[in-house]
Structure formats: structure tokens, C-alpha cells
Design a binder for these strands. Sequence first.
DNA 1: CGCTTGACACCGT
DNA 2: AACGGTGCCAAGC
Length: 108
Amino acid sequence: MTDAGKIKDKKQRFYDLLVQIPHGKVTTYGRLAKIIHTSPRVIGYWCATNSHFPRVPCHRVVSSDGSIGGYTHPAGIKKKIELLEKEGIATKKGKIVGFQSNFFKIKK
DNA sequence: CGCTTGACACCGT
DNA sequence: AACGGTGCCAAGC
């Protein structure tokens, strides 16, 4: 068969998954980790080493409970929060408000 | 040197 | 109090 859907590196798969997230939507590390079948820590690192916008909107990735988690950026984690709000996502005390409503249903 | 993988600690139930 | 899940780091090849 074809390989139109040939599986590339997990990392590449992760980026492909991440870029399919629409504007104003968010996802979680653990969810991605389960889908890609890797460690949730890896998810964050892949983002950290690829904070090149708009290639990878890692700012749309938050922890599983709605926390921002961490963020390696020349601006600071707070910048991520502001960026999130700019997308249309509300945050409170560094936590996403109703983030579950903005949760993007990733296709498995 | 850059990229990838894993275990431990913390929080919630 | 213990277990399960999450987490943007550090070490190894």
C-alpha cells in the first residue's frame, strides 16, 4: 500500500498534529503523548526546541488540567498567557478558564 | 553537538 | 495515605 499515510518520525507526527489545531483552540500534553505514544515530557521539549512561529503554535499547548505548564520563550511564560487570550481564550491566574470548552478534539 | 527517551516528584481524588 | 497522571528537564549516543 500506498503510503500516503506513511508514518514518519513521531516528532514529525507531533508537529503535524499540532499545526492542525485551529486558531482559538488548545490541546494538552498528556493527550498528545497518548496519541503519539511517547512521554508527556517529550511533548513539551519538542515545542521548546521549535518555538518558531507560526510553524509550531506551542503556545496552544497546555497541561492537562488547564495550567500553562511551562514555556521556553524569549518573552516569558506570561507572554504565552497573553498570546492565549489574544486567540480568544480566557485565563485566570495562569490557568485557562473553560479551557475544556476550547479543547480541540484531536483526531486519533 | 543535537536529538530522543525515561524516571521521579507533586497534586488531586 | 497511597495511587495514577502529568511535566517545556537532563543525560547518553
